[in-house]
């Protein structure tokens, strides 16, 4: 029992982060709705942010702001992963914004964001363009014959 306890105390957070990551990836693969896929993508990104924050953590460390009485580096947690993740959060914000605007355009053009419907409509669209192309070619031929 103590072994499991100590394992969970030391590595448990990594296990949870991994589960979160796997949930996100699984969601992207299995969800049919594009909005849900986007949400799962965000969950996945949050998992990585947690992973980095775990790296910066240490027992007995305080926030990385210069305090009187704490002069040693050992007394502060590592601020660098936090800085990195600030950048990663901004990137994930940008990605989400682009994703949402793309979703808006998809909804505008196809009228749906369900993957099955979308595939069906894409097929219809390609058949239609082929038909119009053939029609145009026939018209060209006829005008030439005349």
């Amino acid at each position: 029992m103590t072994m499991i306890n100590s394992f969970l105390a030391e590595k448990g957070i990594y296990l949870l982060t991994f589960i979160l990551l796997a949930l996100g990836v699984a969601g992207i693969i299995t969800c049919n709705n594009y909005m849900k896929k986007l949400i799962c993508m965000n969950i996945m990104q949050v998992a990585v942010i947690f992973l980095f924050l775990c790296l910066g953590q240490k027992r007995g460390g305080t926030i990385p702001v210069a305090l009187s009485g704490a002069a040693e580096a050992a007394e502060y947690i590592n601020p660098l992963p936090h800085g990195l993740m600030l950048t990663a959060i901004v990137v994930s914000l940008g990605t989400t914004a682009v994703g949402l605007s793309l979703l808006l355009r998809i909804k505008e053009k196809y009228g749906t964001i369900e993957e099955d419907d979308l595939l069906y409509r894409e097929k219809l669209l390609s058949m239609e363009t082929q038909r119009t192309r053939e029609k145009l070619k026939k018209q060209d031929q006829q005008s030439k014959d005349k």
Partner: peptide, 14 residues
Amino acid sequence: GVVSAYRYLLVGTI
């Protein structure tokens, strides 16, 4: 293009 960009976005983010 919009649909393929969205698919690329999901895969690229992974």
